[in-house]
């Protein structure tokens, strides 16, 4: 299905668009980070070093008021002093309130975001695309009912829906062993990765509607194409037509939607983690929630660095989506020549 023409278009668009290059660099960066997290992270992201807590990132120093309590003559005396906290080269992005290395947490957070984003999108697509294609191709009552359900789901705030579903199902998570660590290649790193399975299910089921709508719209316009009629005239059944003619011609907008959805689901996962509904404690959203109390007291980096990570990955994936959109479509129906 990926013809030489598509590849050529991808190349041309890529050459002509600086944004596509930025998007690709960002996305590849996140992919590599997530895949090779145990090698990139300098520390175990869950290891607490209380004596090294709240270190600022390199290049920043922070004055902070430290309150220490001492037993002086049998009384507890509280001394507040202003201390200069200087960054430590071992923690280039600083540490959080429990002394965990921020860089390592962001690196591992990429795993959570990406896995939830991709699995959630796949789930949403696997549910939404067949439903949408079926509804759009057959129309009639099936279509009416499915699309009203879709409308209702769209009208309902997805975060509220997600929170309600998690409330219903609980916060299940599975531990997936990290192959690098199991193989002994990255000693000292967490042995397993926590996959918040409920979150994946929830974001998938909240977002299937988008896929259903796009797939339905495509199916609606494709069902009237003469090649679909020709295929029916040849004796093909509906399933074969949807599979052979409708899906391949609808795939471009679905792929583009998929990239946008990965970004949207990363945001949704962060929101859920932020609200404490995720099953994992290694997530950008979770860290933002942890860090939010410290913003007012000067430790801005605990919340904002994961925030930046979310921002860059969402931007990167969206730019990638734009690139795919621009290069997958043009000229497929076009006629050459003038007049």
């Amino acid at each position: 299905m990926v013809s030489a023409r598509v590849i050529r278009n991808l190349k041309t668009e890529f050459r002509n668009s600086a944004l596509a290059k930025i998007g690709l660099v960002l996305v590849v960066g996140i992919l590599v980070t997530a895949a090779f997290a145990p090698f990139i992270a300098p520390h175990d992201p869950t290891e607490q070093q209380l004596d090294q807590s709240e270190l600022p990132p390199l290049g920043f120093s922070e004055t902070t008021e430290r309150t220490t309590s001492q037993m002086v003559d049998g009384e507890i005396q509280t001394v507040t002093e202003t201390v200069e906290v200087t960054p430590d080269a071992a923690h280039p992005l600083g540490t959080d309130s429990l002394g965990r290395d921020m860089l390592s947490r962001i690196v591992y957070g990429a795993r959570t975001s990406l896995v939830v984003g991709v699995l959630g999108t796949l789930l949403a697509g696997l549910v939404g695309v067949p439903v949408g294609l079926f509804a759009g191709y057959h129309r009639g009552n099936v279509d009416d009912v499915l699309m009203r359900i879709a409308d209702v789901s769209l009208a309902f705030p997805s975060l509220v829906l997600a929170v309600a579903l998690i409330g219903l199902w609980g916060r299940a998570a599975v531990n997936v062993p990290d192959p690098f660590v199991v193989a002994g290649l990255a000693p000292g790193m967490p042995e397993s990765f926590v996959l918040p399975i409920t979150v994946v299910l929830v974001v998938g089921l909240v977002n299937w509607v988008w896929f259903a709508r796009v797939a339905r719209g495509e199916a609606l316009s494709l069902r009237g194409q003469e090649y679909v009629k020709a295929s029916r005239a040849l004796g093909a059944d509906d399933t074969a037509i949807i599979w052979n003619h409708v899906l391949p011609n609808a795939i471009t907008p679905i792929i583009v939607l998929g990239t946008v959805q990965v970004a949207a689901i990363i945001l949704l996962e962060s929101s859920l983690s932020f609200l404490g509904f995720s099953g994992t404690t290694l997530s950008w959203g979770f860290d933002i929630a942890q860090g939010r109390d410290y913003i007012s007291s000067g430790q801005w980096w605990i919340a904002s660095l994961p925030g930046l990570a979310i921002m860059f990955s969402v931007i990167g994936i969206n730019l990638l989506g734009d690139w795919l959109r621009d290069s997958l479509d043009p000229g497929i129906e076009g006629e050459g020549g003038a007049a």
Binding site: Y227, K229, A230, A233, G235, H245, N249, E333, E335
Partner: peptide, 18 residues
């Protein structure tokens, strides 16, 4: 369906572009 066939008008929409 084997015995009766159809040819359409529009040479662009009658062939699946993929």
């Amino acid at each position: 369906r084997k015995r009766a066939q159809i040819v359409f008008q529009d040479p662009f929409s009658s062939l699946d572009p993929r």
